[in-house]
Nucleic acid binder design. Sequence first.
DNA 1: AACATTGTTCAATGAATGTTGAACTATTGT
DNA 2: ACAATAGTTCAACATTCATTGAACAATGTT
Lengths: 137, 137
Amino acid sequence: MQRDVFHPATGQISLPAVYNALSDPVRLQIVARLSELGELGELTCSAFLDYGSKTVISYHLARMREAGVTRTRIEGKQHYVSLRAGDLETRFPGLLPVVIASVRAEVKAAARKSPVCAAPKRPAKKPAARKSAKAVA
Amino acid sequence: MQRDVFHPATGQISLPAVYNALSDPVRLQIVARLSELGELGELTCSAFLDYGSKTVISYHLARMREAGVTRTRIEGKQHYVSLRAGDLETRFPGLLPVVIASVRAEVKAAARKSPVCAAPKRPAKKPAARKSAKAVA
DNA sequence: AACATTGTTCAATGAATGTTGAACTATTGT
DNA sequence: ACAATAGTTCAACATTCATTGAACAATGTT
């Protein structure tokens, strides 16, 4: 019954939202996979099940769709997902190609060592010796 | 006493972390401002007070620094902040220039209408008529 | 009709994010 | 020593995010 889903108009795509959509390893891998197909390549949601459970994939795909990074075309039971390469090029010229190049390099580098590209956690803070112990003045 | 702060090595800069650092309007404005100065331009934290309180600026600058987007050089009481343009170019060629071009366009467009570039909130979900009311079978 | 396929939606949970104001640290004047 | 300047750090709070598992919905197959 739900025959179509929300997509922001090209002009409504916001830069922070796009970067936010790209700030997750799972989503970057999805972009990488989609980019292998060329400009108009489409994949079905289940093509990404390597990266997480179907619930997780559904969540991330919705996130990218709502940010304007991907388009979802529904046909029968399948939901075909593609990159909005043209729209993004119109709105933020050069952005997507750079993303693709970077993510490919990163994925390739990650393949050489570890299974998934993870961010190095920040150093964490010290135990903290806080709160005016200067009483011994 | 705290004479220097953490910066990830160039090779340790992660792509999701960088995009994450760029996924906030305040931080994008900081990048925009820094980019106006050319490659090596430095600004002091207080130069960004238009974008938020000193606490907020401190928070966002730390975030970008830890992601590898900016460098902070401490000299006396001032903390000089600059873009890690060279390091980013090494790690993710073309990324920063595109970011700068995009954010400038966005900031310019925002200046034409509203004070701050805000993302259009997603359509929100419907009230929901959930949970098996199919009891009337 | 019954069933499998393909995917969404929901509630719950825990972690991360962004903001605020107060307290703190370090440096530089006077 | 006292005070001003420049920034950080902390606790608290409200949001948002990412993940899980169960329930749901729409389509297609037998």
